[in-house]
């Protein structure tokens, strides 16, 4: 029971676990939409695109406050999203090319600015690079409160526009035909990923954000065909991965939190992929075998042959 005790009373573990759990919930819900709309890798691009925002926010304000830097990150990520949506719509460049362009160029500019800041010999500059690899252990109570506020804003938008998001995720053409402002909704839903990225940067870092966006949704998709169930499962999986990763990394020596969260999440994805009753590979195989036997029993050998 000492783990449970620590979770509640140990200051560091409590903040890390809470932060990771919030990240899991928010990126789980928003990522589920991204997965359905096949935009999962957008999380990867946005998190990289956030870096120059962090640097510019720091250069302009000289502040190291999490919330200031995260707002900078959010704005840069959002500009990256708009650039991506616009170019994919208006030029012959494909989405996957633009994901790569936004990711690498924004990040490269960020690195350039980061090295500029570092030679400034500013005592304040230390700590910006924790956003690169994530440093969950450095989370303090104020950070967690910022996460709650940012995350709640994102989730409220999802709840308020749930029906609209559902339609544009599954049938954008129908959404357009019934007069919904599809382009605006598309931009809102895509931009919400920025919220997940803002929470994720400090917890898991730039590189691993892709997993936090895609993993929970991809796992939840195997268990259900209903959107609201999928969103709840996705949030749950994200939260479980967050908390278990945080606990394992604090209990065992020298295991970084971010990577451990991602490894937990990968385990959840694999279990879902193989074992989920609805779409899992193993249950699917069993059903197929059973059907073959049934057909063979009835003498439909040829059909069974074709089906196998």
């Amino acid at each position: 029971m000492s783990v449970l005790h620590d979770l509640i009373f140990d200051y560091t573990l409590r903040n890390v676990a809470l932060g990771a759990m919030l990240l899991g919930i928010v990126s789980g819900v928003l990522g589920a939409f991204a997965v359905l709309r096949r935009q999962g890798l957008l999380g990867d691009s946005l998190s990289h695109a956030a870096l120059p925002g962090i640097c510019i926010a720091f250069m302009l304000t000289g502040s190291r406050e999490t919330i200031v830097l995260l707002i900078g990150a959010g704005i840069a990520g959002w500009l990256g999203t708009l650039l991506l949506l616009r170019t994919v719509r208006d030029t012959k460049l494909s989405e996957d090319t633009m994901l790569g362009v936004v990711l690498s160029v924004f990040f490269g500019v960020g690195i350039l600015l980061l090295t500029l800041i570092q030679q400034g010999n500013d005592a304040n500059q230390a700590g910006l690079d924790k956003y690169l690899f994530g440093q969950a252990a450095s989370l303090i109570a104020d950070d967690v409160i910022s996460f709650v506020v940012i995350g709640a804003l994102g989730l409220i938008v999802v709840i308020a526009l749930y029906k609209e998001f559902k339609v544009i995720s599954f049938d954008p053409a129908f959404a357009f035909s019934i007069g919904l402002p599809t382009r605006l909704l598309d931009i809102i839903l895509t931009s919400l990923l920025v919220v997940a990225v803002m929470i994720g940067l400090q917890t898991v870092g730039v590189v691993l954000m892709a997993a936090m966006v895609i993993g929970p949704g991809a796992a939840a998709r195997q268990w259900t065909d209903r959107l609201h169930v999928m969103l709840i499962l996705s949030a749950l999986f994200g939260a479980i991965a967050g908390v278990s990763g945080a606990v394992i990394s604090v209990q065992a020596a020298r295991i970084p939190t971010g990577p451990m969260i991602v490894l937990s999440l990968t385990a959840i994805v694999l279990v879902s992929l193989f074992l989920a009753p609805r779409h899992g590979l193993l249950p699917d195989q069993i059903r197929r075998r059973r059907q073959q036997t049934r057909l063979r029993d009835r003498g439909f050998d040829a059909v069974a042959e074709v089906r196998s």
């Binding site: 997965v35 890798l41 997993a211 020298r254 970084p256 971010g258 991602v262």
Partner: peptide, 24 residues
């Protein structure tokens, strides 16, 4: 079960995370 880009987004962070854990 997991389409195009999403498959990448599952595999490469897992590999990177594994590498980071082994390093530390």
């Amino acid at each position: 079960r997991i389409e195009g880009g999403e498959a990448m987004g599952i595999v490469f962070p897992a590999m990177f995370a594994l590498g980071t854990v082994i390093v530390s």
